[in-house]
Write a protein that binds this DNA or RNA. Structure first.
Lengths: 201, 201
DNA sequence: CAATTCCTTTGATAATTGTCAAAATCGCTT
DNA sequence: AAGCGATTTTGACAATTATCAAAGGAATTG
């Protein structure tokens, strides 16, 4: 019967739920429970999404745009991480510990994101063990990303690091200021500029 | 009744189970399930616990001793991580992905460790969701450790990194060769030697 | 479209750190 | 305690990268 079929069609998932499903498929009941603690937001360029010293209670899935995690070292702005479309961003140091964070998060473009209220997730963990697994796998993924970055810092030259970043986010230098990229790579803006001019030849 | 009391006494936990319990308390049934996939081993100094290119199927809790995770960069031995008593060590990049690992693991002292066979853990996850949580929290802890190391690399001088390492493992330079410590800090052995001689004055 | 501001590149110089070789020290073994 | 090998320190020099200042470009605004 037509209507029945239509009603049984799974609802179109939003990009955040699709992301979660790509890690661990979860049924509609679980999706609903997660949706209930998630908010979609459209925010303009340069929004300071999170501020150093605050306690972070959510993480964000980026549907569109680019976010920059940074911190101030001797008054200078130092980039710790870039996240772009299809990735997660949060002040993880605070989210996982409940302590105040070391990091700021800034949106470097007009951004669409889905914010999961992590402080409300405990009941979801209790009700649906699959979400516990989801959490475990998400952290695992992020651990491996950080491990990659650590390897790059420990074992590769500034130039190699820059080239690897270009593989991840090819248009990064069009999307954020060069100084932000330089501090992410752990070098001065002038040095990055020289690396770039070397690569052009 | 005497005997009843005695029989009800919880068995003395081994250090590995105590470590797990400190993260998430688990009952004896779960402890037993974990014990069934764990092996205690005493291994001599310089044992190569794991070899680059292999697929890692276990992680190890160190009851005694110190382990060094390292890799070869252009033929040179570079330390990626130290774990000592009370900590976990593994080739995490492989353990979590099933891909071959980038890292070697060497025991730098006579060591007592508990090896959990991670490839047998799936059934334990299925049977006891609490273990899934345990896994999530363990990875979270390790994520935060790696985040700390990353911060040190990105934001601190070689000297600051050395001082922070001394806080974590004060006797590290008595326990492993200085060159191993230097490569962990991302500097040459000569440079570390000069930092040390500077600190002595 | 000129003016202003912000961002990137270039140049000159200084500081940091690496490399190679040799000397000094440490820890065994005999 | 002397001798040996391994490890650490020191010295001289080279390479890398930072800093400061200025010039060149790009984008934005009146």
């Amino acid at each position: 019967m037509q209507f029945g079929l239509i009603f049984n069609c799974p609802k179109k998932m939003n990009p955040f739920l699709e992301y979660l499903n790509s890690i661990v498929p979860v049924n509609e009941e679980v999706q609903m429970a997660i949706s209930n603690i998630t908010v979609r937001r459209e925010l303009p360029e340069n929004t300071l999404l999170f501020k150093q010293g605050d306690i972070c209670k959510e993480f964000h899935y980026l549907e569109k745009g680019i976010a920059r995690v940074f911190y101030y070292k001797d008054g200078k702005d130092v980039t710790a991480w870039f996240s772009s479309e299809g990735q997660i961003v949060s002040a993880i140091d605070s989210l996982f510990t409940g302590q105040s964070s070391f990091y700021n998060i800034q949106l470097a473009e007009n951004t669409v994101l889905w914010s999961l209220q992590f402080d409300k997730i405990e009941t979801v963990f209790e009700a649906y063990p699959i979400v516990e697994r989801l959490g475990r796998l998400m952290i695992t993924q992020n651990y491996l990303l950080l491990d990659e970055r650590m390897k790059l810092f420990a074992f590769c030259s500034a130039e190699e690091r820059y080239e690897k970043l270009l593989v991840q986010i090819p248009d990064i230098t069009q999307r954020v200021k060069l100084g932000y990229v330089a501090s992410y790579l752990g070098i001065s803006q002038e040095h990055l500029s020289r690396i770039r001019s070397g690569l052009r030849k």
